[in-house]
Amino acid sequence: YHADTFFNDLHKTLKADFIMANPPFNLSNWGQDKLKDDIRWKYGVPPAGNANYAWIQHMIHHLAPNGKIGLVLANGALSTQSSGEGDIRKNIIEADLVEGIVSMPTQLFYSVTIPVTLWFITKGKKQKGKTLFVDARKMGYMVDRKHRDFTDEDIQKLADTFKAFQDGTLEEVKGFCAVADIQAIAAQDYILTPGRYVGIEEQEDDGEPFDEKMKRLTSELSDMFKKSHELENEIREKLGAIGYDI
């Protein structure tokens, strides 16, 4: 039945074990003024100008006691503090519902090129009080100039990472995955951007001593500056020759 799920919830008593969704990103004018007292807004009334946290709470409301949600959202939902969204996110985190957040690369969609985030929201988490953060922005391959896809190995790597986290056997990898408790997330103002938690991947030591590397790099930079000044003077001369002094 074709309907607006906010205004006419056709499954008011439904409690789902699994929910998978790709709701419209940053939907404005979704009718918040008519739904301010709705039972679904347990963690706060979503702002009128953005439905992201309305979708999230709509799904949580329909989740069974041990249910799981997997959804795709625009990256802004990870860190927004606008119009009470930060407080809603804080309340959802404090309720220990966020099991995992995965940053995805750009160009995964045919219609938009923006990077997105996978949210995994779970009631009855195996790892209570903890959230898995994964930075997958470097994963995948370009199918053509405009579209990126994941290999089966990429997908399996993400699945294995989640399973290891749930089993309590995950080894954190700098720049890729990390586990944070609610206190650590609170210290980051309840912002869920994975990069804040996974850090920067460790660079392989090339064996060149630091002092020697700095001397080499500063020498190269000096040569670049010299070349830059030469080009600047040449451009000034050529512009001056045609009557445009700088």
Rank of each mutant, 00 (worst) to 15 (best):
I60W: 09
D33P: 02
L35D: 13
H61E: 07
P24K: 10
H58Y: 14
M59S: 13
H61V: 00
A54S: 14
W30K: 07
H58L: 00
N29L: 01
I56P: 10
D38R: 04
I39Q: 14
P24C: 06
W41H: 11
A48F: 03
P46Q: 10
N50Y: 08
D37V: 03
A54C: 13
A48E: 10
H61P: 00
K36Y: 08
W30T: 10
P24W: 04
P24V: 03
W41P: 09
G31N: 11
N52P: 03
N26Y: 06
K36A: 09
H62L: 00
N29P: 01
A54P: 13
D37A: 13
H62R: 12
K34T: 11
N29A: 06
G49F: 02
N52L: 00
Y43D: 07
L35R: 15
I60M: 05
H62F: 00
P24S: 08
P46I: 03
A64T: 02
Q32E: 15
Q32S: 13
D33Q: 13
H58P: 04
L35E: 14
Y53P: 03
R40V: 00
D37N: 15
D33I: 03
N29F: 01
M59V: 02
K36T: 15
P23W: 09
K34Q: 14
A48G: 12
I39Y: 12
K42E: 14
A64W: 01
K34V: 03
N29T: 02
M59I: 05
P24Q: 11
V45T: 15
L63E: 07
P46L: 04
K34I: 01
L27H: 10
L35W: 13
Y43V: 04
K34F: 09
Q32P: 05
I56N: 08
P24A: 04
A54L: 08
N29I: 00
D38M: 01
I39G: 05
S28D: 09
L27Y: 07
Y53K: 05
A64L: 01
L63G: 05
K42C: 01
I56F: 11
Q32A: 12
G31F: 05
L35V: 14
P47Q: 07
D38A: 11
L27P: 13
F25Y: 15
P23S: 13
W30C: 07
N52V: 00
V45F: 09
V45P: 13
Y43H: 09
V45I: 15
K42N: 09
P46N: 11
P24I: 03
V45Y: 12
D37C: 02
K36D: 10
N50S: 08
A54T: 14
F25L: 00
K42S: 07
M59G: 10
H58R: 07
A51R: 12
A64Y: 01
N50I: 06
P47W: 05
G31E: 13
A64N: 05
H61C: 01
A51P: 13
P47F: 02
H61L: 00
L27E: 13
W55T: 11
G49M: 05
A64S: 12
L63F: 04
H58I: 00
P23D: 12
G44D: 08
F25H: 10
H61I: 00
K42T: 14
L63S: 06
W55Y: 15
A64V: 02
A64Q: 03
I56D: 09
I56V: 15
W30P: 09
G44C: 02
I60F: 06
P46A: 08
I56W: 08
I39E: 15
G49Q: 08
I60L: 10
